[in-house]
C-alpha cells in the first residue's frame, strides 16, 4: 500500500517535471539566438510639417502632405508639462479643431523623456475635462509647445516591442525641440532585421525601398544626442537632424 502511494506520488511529480522541462526547451528553441545581419536599415520619415491658423471658432492646420494613416496626432502642452493629444482625420491635407473636440490622451513627460500616459476616454462622459480647442489656445497664449506628429508613442510601442536589441536603446523616442515625439534610430546598433518598419502602421518607420525622403530621417550617428526640447520657441518649418 505504502509502496503504491510512493509510486503514484513519484509519477505525478515526474509528470510535472517533464512538463516543466518541455516548456523550457520549447521556449529556448523558439527564442532567437542570432540576429539577422543581412537586410535593410529602417527609414524614419521626417517629422510632418504643418501651419496653424487660429480663429475664434476653429483652428485649421494645413499640412504639406497626406499622412499614410489618414489621421494625425495634434498635440499641445498644458501647464503641468504634459503633452495632451487628439487624433484627428485629415481631409485634403487639412485638419480642423473645433470647440467640440476633446483630447484623447495625455502623455506625462520629464525633460525630454516620456514617463507615462493616460487615455482620456469620453465613452462614459466622466473624464472629459477641458476641450482640446481651449488647451491649444492656452498653449499658444502661454508660449508652450504645440504641433502635429504621426507617431503614436507611447500609446503604440510596436516597433520597440519587436526590436530584438531594444535593451541597447537602438530605437529611442525622445521629445524634440518643438514638443513632438518622434523615433530616433541608433544605426550602429541596428541589426537590420526589418521588423520595426513591418509593424509600423502609421508610416513613420518605413521600408527603405518605399521611402521617398531617403536619408532625411532622424538617425543617431557617432553618439550624437537628441536636442533638449525648449518651450516658448516658434515651430521650425523644417526639422531634420
Amino acid at each position: 500500500m505504502e509502496n503504491s502511494t510512493t509510486r503514484t506520488a513519484g509519477s505525478a511529480f515526474l509528470f510535472i517535471l517533464i512538463v516543466m522541462i518541455t516548456t523550457v526547451v520549447a521556449y529556448v528553441v523558439q527564442a532567437e539566438r542570432k540576429m539577422h545581419t543581412e537586410g535593410l536599415y529602417p527609414e524614419v520619415k521626417p517629422l510632418v510639417q504643418g501651419t496653424f491658423t487660429f480663429s475664434h471658432d476653429k483652428i485649421e492646420i494645413h499640412m504639406m502632405e497626406d499622412p499614410v494613416w489618414k489621421r494625425i496626432v495634434v498635440y499641445a502642452y498644458d501647464e503641468g508639462v504634459s503633452q495632451v493629444g487628439i487624433v484627428k482625420p485629415v481631409y485634403d491635407r487639412t485638419v480642423i479643431i473645433t470647440p467640440d473636440d476633446y483630447p484623447d490622451f495625455r502623455v506625462k513627460t520629464n525633460g525630454n523623456k516620456v514617463v507615462g500616459f493616460d487615455v482620456i476616454n469620453n465613452s462614459n462622459g466622466a473624464l472629459q475635462g477641458k476641450s482640446f480647442f481651449g488647451i491649444l489656445n492656452d498653449a499658444k497664449e502661454g508660449s508652450r509647445c504645440f504641433g502635429i506628429q504621426e507617431c503614436l508613442y507611447p500609446l503604440c510601442t510596436r516597433c520597440m516591442d519587436v526590436c530584438p536589441v531594444i535593451q541597447h536603446g537602438v530605437i529611442e523616442m525622445p521629445i524634440l525641440k518643438n514638443g513632438a515625439i518622434h523615433p530616433l534610430v541608433h544605426l550602429p546598433g541596428c541589426p537590420r532585421c526589418g521588423k520595426c518598419f513591418e509593424v509600423c502602421k502609421v508610416g513613420v518607420l518605413l521600408n527603405p525601398s518605399k521611402a521617398l525622403d531617403k536619408g532625411k530621417g532622424t538617425f543617431l550617428h557617432d553618439d550624437q544626442k537628441a536636442m533638449e526640447p525648449s518651450k516658448g520657441e516658434e515651430i521650425p518649418l523644417n526639422h531634420y537632424y
Binding site: 503514484t8 506520488a9 505525478a12 509528470f15
Partner: peptide, 8 residues
C-alpha cells in the same frame, strides 16, 4: 489531471 493521477 494531476489530482486524478495522485488520487487515482
Amino acid at each position: 489531471a494531476v489530482v486524478m493521477m495522485i488520487g487515482k
